[in-house]
Amino acid sequence: MLKLHNLSKVYRTDEVETAALNSVNIEIESGEFVAIMGPSGCGKSTLLNIIGMLDSPSSGDYIFMGENVAPYGEAKLSNIRKQHIGFIFQSFNLIDELSVEENIELALLYHNIPASERRERVAHVMDKVGIAHRAKHMPSQLSGGQQQRVAVARAVVGDQAMILADEPTGNLDSAHGQEVMEMLQSLNEEGTTIVMVTHSPAHADYARRTINLFDGHVVTENLRAAV
């Protein structure tokens, strides 16, 4: 699916140069469920943003589905991103002014998909995450767990091959957290590649592989035996 080779990211301000990632080498196969762990400031989110093509590396290669996307500009990245990658955030990031359906539909809006097909796919994915009865509601009328389910629905409605989740359970209580993790697991079982940043070792256990980051380096990679 993707391969990071000697990838570094350096943030520059006027006086300080901070290396957020330092010669990272990671390979993720299609269909994998990978958890990224590490203390605050270790570069987890930077790594996830680069994988998600929301940010570009300072040096090194990023081979995504056989293409080196490291030198690509924003427009090209945006194109690849919207076709293949879905996002789930800790704070859900739903648009307050749009209803549940409209929030989910947003992921299809920029894909030139006819309206009727969009409606069909949104309805299907709402059923799948069990939020259909809330279709017309606004995000502010939903609980956190429900909001995150909407976010998951939005991440997969475009048939994305890979989902990047940035602490998807961080704002949820344990019951709702578990619900979301189970949803991700079942998506993974259907073949979706999942890369997840998390602080919770319990939730990391859902993943088949855990990558530990520290100060911009990959420290360990633990492969768990298949369950």
Binding site: L54, S78, N79, R81, K82, Q83, I95, L106
Partner: peptide, 8 residues
Amino acid sequence: IRKVMGAS
């Protein structure tokens, strides 16, 4: 959010 969803 819209940009992440692919808006140019």
